[in-house]
Design a protein around this nucleic acid. Structure first.
Lengths: 240, 240
DNA sequence: CGCCGCATTGAGTCCTATCAACCCTCGTGG
DNA sequence: CCACGAGGGTTGATAGGACTCAATGCGGCG
């Protein structure tokens, strides 16, 4: 029982709205939710191209999504942190858009999609929340990535750190100190940079007392200045 | 009557699935759809931050979405072509994510969102199509933009031309010859490049007989080679 | 102990932003 | 009808950022 309502809390978090769902939807959801799932480091949650059958809500841990493009190239297209919903980009195509694997031990709730579809008419509020969740992802990623496109490595890394920081803060963790289980290479692939450049940028930040990094432990020392760096055009400013 | 079913056809195109909606949904939709809207060049469809009240399906013409970031910087975050659905990124926030304006004369169908919500329970198929549409956008943009992040100007421009080409082809127009009403500067802002670099890249393509450009008329002369360019990592290849 | 993955550091090269100049077209107003 | 100006497009020179290639250090794990 405790387990199931935990799951419910998890969904409410993910499909975030402060007020809860109507009782009838909560009860029905209890019926649909699959008990939590546990992945160890390097375990694969789903493979690119595999048939889409469930959404997953991240409860703890960190995962990455890798999409093979070109038979020779694969991109890191997403990181998933606690509170994120995995699989929103697979709903229409019916296949997972990339291979999702755990960067560290992780626990997830599974929401089988066919059962959600079956009961769609009895879960109007939940569906609306799901719709909102996808809409928000679309808006935020579109903006973030377009912003990154015109930025220097310095600004891209700052954007990345601040995004992570904001995410942790929303979940109730410290926005200034955290551990990130991904490698420099992962971060580079996600940001469109090389691992060397990512590492060098961290070093430059450290020299400026903006950041303290030791291995994969990060301490943001000056959020205000990082924000200024993140939104500094670096290149690309028009002069009207 | 013709007008209304035209609108319906428009939606079916936008929320694309070959088979039609059930009759009951078609009839209800006729009731919801607002007769087509016409915009002239430079007319504004909606302003960033304005209250979100409708989705718009592009019937003809071309529009752009500009998002102000920083009080000093505004990014071109989307182009909208015939068949596209405008406003998917505003559903959850209740505010339009950017200012959308016409780059040339355009006609659109308006779908008031509150009425869609009111009849949500009687439009299950339509809602599902909307959900699919947003999911697809999320996946495609995520992939495209992450791809662009690591690419040279040469490859970015090729990606852009091919995306446009594919879009026109899907709508039944020529994939090799088209007019694009946006300026070099618009394209640059969208791709994270300067107008000079965009123009120079076009010139370089012309010198290689890949492309013929005159003003805003484009003729793709060698799709295969363009595709190779678009997916050539340019930089960023790992050697394992 | 020795290997392997990851991180750091350095030198050289290429790409692209920047700044500046010039051309063209078009719409406006005298 | 023409002059003018604004906006968009093209071209060139320069400087700096980031990739590439290569070598070294570090840590965990078999």
């Amino acid at each position: 029982m405790a387990e199931v309502s935990d799951c419910l809390a998890c969904y409410l978090n993910v499909l975030s709205k402060p007020e809860g769902l109507p009782d009838e939807e909560r009860l029905l959801l209890d019926d649909i939710v699959v008990p939590p799932l546990r992945l160890e480091k390097r375990d694969v949650l789903c493979s690119q191209g595999a048939s889409f059958d469930a959404l997953y809500a991240v409860r703890t841990g960190c995962l990455k999504q890798e999409t093979a493009i070109d038979s020779a190239e694969t991109l890191l297209t997403a990181f998933w942190l606690p509170g994120d919903l995995i699989g929103c980009d697979a709903i229409d195509s019916g296949r997972y858009a990339g291979t999702v694997s755990a960067l560290e031990t992780a626990t997830l709730c599974q929401l089988p999609f066919d059962r959600l579809e079956t009961f769609r008419h009895r879960l109007p509020r939940l569906c609306r929340r799901l719709q909102n969740c996808i809409s928000r992802s679309l808006r935020e990623e579109r903006l973030n990535l377009h912003q990154l496109l015109g930025r220097t490595a310095e600004a891209r890394v700052a954007c990345f750190l601040l995004a992570i920081s904001a995410c942790f803060q929303r979940r109730g963790y410290s926005p200034r100190s955290f551990r990130l289980p991904m490698s420099r290479s992962d971060i580079g692939s996600y940001l469109g940079l090389t691992q060397e450049t990512v590492g060098r940028t961290f070093m430059a930040y450290q020299a400026q007392r903006l950041l303290a990094v030791r291995g994969r432990e990060y301490h943001l020392l000056d959020l205000a200045r990082l924000e200024r760096l993140a939104s500094s055009p670096g290149r690309r400013q028009k002069r009207p």
